[in-house]
Simulated assay, not measured.
Amino acid sequence: MKLLIIQQKMIGDVLTSSMMFEALHQKYPNSQLDYLINSHTFPVVENNPFINEFIFFTPEVQNNKIAFLRFLKNLKQKKYDVIIDVYGKLSSNLITLFSKSKFKIGYHKPQSSFIYTHPIKRKTKPDYNASLAIENRMLLLEPLNVPFKVYKPSIYLSKTEIEDAKNYLKHQNIDLNKPLFMISVLGSSLAKSYPFEYMAKLLDAIIKIKPNAQILFNYLPKQKEDVELIFDLCKKSTQNNIFIDVYGKSLREFLAITFHCNALIGNEGGANNMAKALNISTFTIFSPHLNKQNWFGNIESDDHVAVHINDYMEHTNKDRIEAKKNPESYYLKLKPELIIPKLNSFLVNFE
């Protein structure tokens, strides 16, 4: 069997969908299993032993109609027996539509279900205590008789990458015998970022309970100004434990550095999914407009903690809609004093 999975765009989505390859490999060990992704997301699935070939949806293909038509033609010539469209947007719809695949599997949508031989309706509640992101992806494998099992995405670092990161941290005066925490200090946007003053109080709380802890920040160079604002809001004793200039210059470097951390703490996003895939514990703050069940399952609670405003007060679907329009007013209700007891309980696991 020759099979293609399509998952474009976000890094967290590409990483999460990669677990489908392990499930497929167990059921069909001699199959050709290929992955179509945006080129910038490749670092999180590099070296995955269950993926045979990567096909990159590049900016040129995305922005040039002639390049896209050529891309469609080349894919059609590969003659996949099965296409699984996890992405479900126009570009992946067209790729699926113009393929010669006998099985075309994707999520049910009124405007595009005719494309698929097997349109699958998403779950709205998990059945196996996993996240909906995992359970709904496993649903896409049901037409291929792949039994449900909770698979966890994994990131595969080389020994060289791990050793280079270790040496870099030591060179930056990081003591790997002391607790080391990576902080997702900002979300993918300010609308997905815990208020700066509140984040500073959480950082102060970390150092209060773990005075010898060392703190790294996960951020892009263009975010440095906002990161420094949060740093300045911290107590001096906290600032002394923050290594603000120690960060990965590439995504693979970030992954290798995070591998040496005890936990990742902070705003929900791709970094949290990456930490989980590295078997690093996480403490995640979800944006008020998100459904926590989409990306966090109760089955994870032994190693991971996630907080959402709904854990502390009534927060209806209407509130979630309003929170997307005005996130700050809802974030401000999620005061640090509510989160800190759970954070303290999480931190006691690390010496």
Score class of each variant (00 low, 15 high):
3 L>F: 10
9 K>E: 14
10 M>N: 15
11 I>V: 12
23 A>Q: 06
26 Q>M: 05
34 D>R: 13
37 I>R: 03
47 N>V: 09
63 N>R: 11
66 I>F: 06
66 I>H: 08
86 V>P: 00
86 V>N: 11
90 L>P: 00
93 N>C: 04
94 L>M: 12
96 T>W: 05
114 F>Y: 14
115 I>K: 03
118 H>A: 14
121 K>S: 14
121 K>P: 01
125 K>G: 00
136 N>E: 08
141 L>V: 10
151 Y>A: 04
154 S>E: 13
155 I>W: 05
157 L>G: 08
161 E>S: 12
162 I>S: 05
163 E>S: 15
166 K>D: 03
167 N>C: 02
167 N>W: 01
168 Y>V: 08
177 N>A: 02
179 P>Y: 03
179 P>V: 06
187 G>A: 02
193 S>V: 14
193 S>N: 14
195 P>M: 03
197 E>Q: 04
209 I>V: 10
211 P>K: 05
222 K>A: 04
224 K>F: 11
225 E>I: 15
227 V>Q: 13
237 S>R: 03
243 F>T: 02
246 V>W: 01
246 V>I: 13
247 Y>L: 04
254 F>E: 11
266 G>E: 13
266 G>D: 13
271 A>G: 09
273 N>L: 12
274 M>L: 11
279 N>D: 15
283 F>R: 09
286 F>T: 02
298 N>M: 06
309 I>A: 00
313 M>I: 02
316 T>M: 03
327 P>T: 11
328 E>F: 10
333 K>H: 01
336 P>Q: 06
342 K>E: 13
345 S>W: 01
347 L>P: 05
348 V>N: 03
350 F>P: 04
